[in-house]
């Protein structure tokens, strides 16, 4: 057993290791650079709009942040545990008097800090481009900067949840491909669960589908994260009102979901046998 002070120390050591690993990774740096270069093209794309230059610009830059962030998340999260397994450094870690949960949590927190930095850098670039465009092409309604940063924050939470899911699969899988494929599948599926639920509730869904399919649909809605709730692009791009209750509930829901996935990952990792 570890004493009270040792746990934070171990945790911070793993956070540092994860951050250093991420910074050294050339693939991650390359993805970030590509993202920044793409964001530089925002004004070029936006001027093609007939009536909503800023809306097109913000939609384009948020799409880039979402895609680049997803690539960063997957490449970072997949290497968090899998790299130690591949390089067999996990054996050394396991032989030390530290808990596997501390190892996993430390690594994940390192990943969370790196992703936050990446989203902040991409967000600042994007905000700069949007601010310039806002001056050149003043929109009919003032651009919702608060909504923009809130949207980026929730986008960050999507990356955290996807990262946690990837880590969960990494703790049980024996290859890199399976966690990657499952995480990508869950990412795309999680944007559709709400639409599926609406369909099941609609007249068409009620009449056409068997009870088993309906139960399965509801189950999937509860199991997969509802990323549609985190997607505030429409509100940001068109400056629509956001209720405080929605924001708070979404945040709490995201926190709860992330917690569940991380705890499951810790349980799976602590039970895994390394031979």
């Amino acid at each position: 057993m570890k004493d009270g002070a040792a746990v934070p120390r171990t945790l911070s050591a793993f956070i540092t290791v994860a951050i250093k690993g991420g910074i050294r990774d050339r693939v991650i740096s390359a993805i970030l650079v590509v993202g920044l270069l793409l964001l530089l093209t925002t004004p070029v794309v936006a001027v093609f709009s007939m009536r909503q230059v800023l809306a097109l610009a913000s939609s384009y830059s948020l799409s880039i942040i979402s895609l680049v962030g997803l690539l960063l998340t997957l490449s970072m999260a997949i290497s968090l545990v899998a790299r130690d397994l591949e390089q067999r450094s996990i054996y050394t870690v396991c032989s030390l008097p530290i808990s596997r949960s501390s190892y996993l949590l430390g690594k994940f927190l390192g990943f969370a800090i790196l992703i936050l930095l990446a989203v902040a850098i991409l967000g600042c670039f994007s905000a700069g481009a949007l601010a310039v465009l806002e001056r050149i092409y003043p929109p009919e309604r003032p651009f919702a900067w608060g909504g923009f940063f809130l949207g980026l924050w929730f986008q960050y939470w999507i990356f955290l949840i996807v990262g946690a899911i990837t880590v969960l699969f990494s703790t049980v899988a024996t290859s890199n491909f399976l966690p990657l494929a499952l995480s990508v599948g869950i990412y795309f599926g999680s944007y559709s669960t709400e639409a599926v639920r609406y369909y099941l509730q609609s007249g068409g869904g009620e009449d056409k589908l068997s009870p088993a399919v309906k139960i399965f649909g509801k189950l999937v809605y509860w199991i997969l994260p509802n990323f549609s709730a985190f997607d505030l692009k429409t509100e940001i791009v068109y400056g629509l009102a956001l209720s405080g209750k929605t924001v708070l509930l979404t945040q709490l829901y995201g926190f709860a979901y992330l917690g569940i996935v991380l705890v499951l990952a810790m349980i799976a990792f602590s039970r895994r046998e390394f031979l």
Partner: peptide, 21 residues
Amino acid sequence: VKALSADQYQFISQLITLKCL
């Protein structure tokens, strides 16, 4: 398109409009 494009549907909508133009 919405089911397959995750959160990119909004930008896809604008791309379709630009393609029409």
